[in-house]
């Protein structure tokens, strides 16, 4: 909102219904198609195009195929290292998760505002990151209880715990286990939100100082702009790292469910 020179750095996160505002309902819940949903669809389409481009299945891969195979190999290695050979069957899920979050983060960083499209980073909403975290956590719970039945609770008693310590250790481990979906979801949400807010605040500095006069613009605007360039690069790194961390932690939790420590 650039009204009266005031720029709201939080406005970028607001959800605006595009259509279906009132009458799109599912069991009494509103399912309007919003800008958030639009970027989810965009992410899906871009991801599909990217992966489909690597489906030539040639013996000697071209650049595109090599890029797609780099990502599948990356996630494959991640799963193998953290969840062992039993982690192989989670490849479709972890790959989808990693690429979906990665592309969502990166697409949200695109400077499309220059051409009048307002990018929206749906991973900066804890509704979304929380849902993804709950999804990962549910997989861990379902796999854990399906594979180990009630023996899964031994996950909360580390090896070599002295018998009198078990009543103390068990609740602590249980709480640290239950906190996982929150830490998983909040980490991504906070990282994305903070980065975007910082960029918008600095952009506000540039605009407001330049509006206040050439001197202010040179004194405040130019350094702010230089900082924005650096932080944009940092944000791209954060976008990749957060997607990686989400996939990494998911594979670690899957390892717990598969192997119980």
């Amino acid at each position: 909102m650039a009204e009266s020179g005031k720029i709201d750095p939080m406005h970028q996160f607001s959800i605006e219904p595009l259509f279906g505002t009132d009458h799109w309902q599912l069991a009494g819940h509103n399912i309007a198609f919003t800008n958030s949903a639009l970027w989810m669809v965009a992410t899906t389409i871009v991801l599909w195009i990217f992966v489909a481009g690597g489906m030539k299945r040639e013996l000697v891969p071209g650049r595109w195929q090599a890029a797609v195979e780099f990502f599948t190999g990356f996630i494959d290695k991640l799963l193998l290292e953290n969840a062992g050979s039993a982690g192989k069957k989670y490849m479709p899920y972890v790959f989808s998760l990693f690429m979906f979050i990665l592309l969502a983060n990166l697409l949200g960083l695109l400077p499309l505002g220059l051409v009048g499209v307002h990018p929206f980073t749906f991973t900066s909403h804890f509704t979304v990151t929380g849902a993804l975290a709950v999804l990962s956590f549910s997989i861990v719970l379902i796999v854990g209880f399906f594979k180990h039945k009630l023996h899964f609770f031994s996950l909360f008693v580390p090896h070599g715990t002295p018998l009198p310590m078990i009543p103390v250790i068990f609740p602590i481990e249980l709480v640290s286990f239950m906190v996982r979906p929150f830490s998983l979801g909040l980490r991504l949400f906070v990282a994305m939100t903070a980065g975007h807010v910082l960029l918008k605040v600095l952009a506000g500095f540039v605009i407001n100082s330049t509006n206040a006069g050439v001197g202010y613009g040179a004194l405040v605007g130019i350094p702010s702009f230089a900082l924005m360039i650096g932080i944009s690069a940092l944000e791209m790194l954060v976008a990749c790292i957060q997607a990686y961390v989400f996939a990494l932690l998911t594979s670690l939790y899957i390892n717990d469910a598969e192997h119980l420590h």
Partner: peptide
């Protein structure tokens, strides 16, 4: 509700 709904649709498609 709309965010979760569309997330499930899109991520489900991706998966």
């Amino acid at each position: 509700s709309s965010q979760i709904f569309w997330l499930l649709i899109t991520f489900g498609l991706v998966f």
